[in-house]
Amino acid sequence: MFVGLLLAGAVAFVAPQFAAIAAIAAIVGGLFPDLDVVANHRRTLHFPVYYWLPAGLTGALALAVPTTMTVGLAVFFLVAAVHSLSDLLGGSHELEPWDGTVDRAVYSHYHGRWLGARRWVGYDGSPGDLALAGALAIPILFLFDGVVQPIVIGMLIVSISYALLRRPIAASLKRGLERPERDTPNERGLESINE
């Protein structure tokens, strides 16, 4: 969402009348792909290739006919595309990505397979991830005023909390998923958790 808000800041700089809708669309577009956490995370709503088509079409439409709706849609699809693609830069899609045992960053429907993690940022919730979030948030606080600033501060608080709790949450989930020693989990069960 921070990257999305920076993109929205560029829109706000060029066309200040669309600052509010650009910020809202950036937040929603940044969150939208991760709604698949309740389904098949980083596969169901993540489209690292396919989001670019509606992003390009709505972007062209917004340039030709700039309205609240066209600008909002353009920013939404652009940020959803950036989100899906940027998941490649982090750790893999697994419960404990710091172990690096699975090489699944994001599923590409275009390629029909999982794309490998680049690990430029260790994993979501890593200290590097938090540092990047903080560095991205600072200019956003100057690009927007009003309600966006408290939202950014709230997002930073969530990021800090998540970074502090990421490993303990994973450990708790892992313990909760494990069965007593006499009835150990089967390979398929663990594999479906990692998917």
Rank of each mutant, 00 (worst) to 15 (best):
H41I: 00
R42K: 08
R42F: 02
R43G: 00
T44K: 07
T44A: 09
L45P: 03
L45C: 02
H46N: 07
F47C: 05
P48Y: 00
V49R: 05
V49D: 14
Y50L: 04
Y50Q: 07
Y51D: 08
Y51K: 10
W52C: 02
W52K: 02
W52S: 03
W52G: 02
L53C: 08
P54F: 00
A55E: 11
G56C: 05
L57V: 10
L57A: 11
G59E: 13
A60S: 10
A60R: 07
A60H: 09
A60D: 13
L63E: 11
L63V: 11
A64H: 13
P66G: 10
T67P: 11
T67R: 14
T68D: 13
M69W: 12
T70S: 13
V71H: 04
V71Q: 03
V71G: 01
G72F: 04
A74P: 05
A74K: 01
A74F: 00
F76I: 00
F77I: 02
L78K: 03
L78M: 12
V79G: 13
A80Y: 07
A80F: 04
A80Q: 03
A81L: 05
S84K: 11
L85E: 12
L85A: 13
S86Q: 06
S86M: 11
S86T: 07
D87G: 09
L88P: 14
L88I: 06
L88S: 09
L88C: 12
L89H: 12
G90A: 15
G90V: 15
G90N: 15
G91Q: 13
S92Q: 08
S92T: 05
H93L: 12
H93K: 08
E94R: 05
E94V: 10
L95A: 10
L95G: 12
E96H: 08
E96Y: 07
P97K: 01
W98I: 05
